[in-house]
Amino acid sequence: MTGRPTEARMVTETRMARTLIDSGPVLLDLDDAGVARLRLNRPEASNGMDVPLLTGLHHAVMRIHGTPGVRAVLLSGEGPHFCAGGDVKTFAAKGADLPAYLREATSWLQNAVSALMRLEAPVVAAVHGFAAGGGGFGLVCAADLVIAAESARFLAGATRVGMAPDAGVSVTLTRLVGLRKAMEIVLTNPVLTAPDALELGLITRVVADDAVYEEGLALARTLAAGAPRANAAAKRLLWDGLGSTVEARLPEEARTVAELSATADAREGLAAVIEHRAPVFGGG
Rank of each mutant, 00 (worst) to 15 (best):
E247M: 02
T12C: 01
V280T: 13
E275Y: 01
F281C: 00
D22V: 02
F281V: 00
T2I: 07
R71Y: 08
I64R: 03
D87N: 15
G216K: 08
A152C: 02
I147N: 09
L57K: 02
L40Q: 04
F154K: 10
L102C: 11
M183N: 09
P5N: 07
E259Y: 02
L109N: 06
A121L: 08
F154R: 09
G157C: 06
R249K: 09
D196C: 04
A248P: 00
D210V: 00
K235N: 03
M1S: 13
A167C: 12
A148E: 08
A131F: 12
V273G: 00
L192D: 03
V61Q: 11
T193Q: 01
R255H: 11
G3P: 05
G283V: 11
D29W: 11
M49R: 07
R71H: 12
L145Y: 15
L200E: 06
A17Y: 07
A33K: 11
A149V: 04
A121Q: 02
G136R: 06
P43G: 04
F137E: 06
E104H: 09
D29E: 10
R236T: 05
F137L: 14
T2F: 03
D210P: 00
D144M: 08
W108D: 05
A45E: 10
V206L: 06
G77D: 03
V212P: 01
T188Q: 14
R18G: 07
R229C: 02
V127H: 09
L242R: 13
G79N: 08
N47P: 06
R221V: 02
V186Q: 08
F130Q: 11
I21R: 11
A33G: 05
E247N: 06
D31F: 02
L217H: 07
V246G: 04
V146T: 12
H128E: 03
G283S: 12
A126M: 10
P251F: 11
T204V: 02
G138E: 13
A100K: 12
L250E: 05
C141Y: 13
H65A: 14
V124I: 13
P279Y: 12
T90R: 13
P122K: 07
D210W: 00
R249Q: 14
L57G: 01
G77S: 07
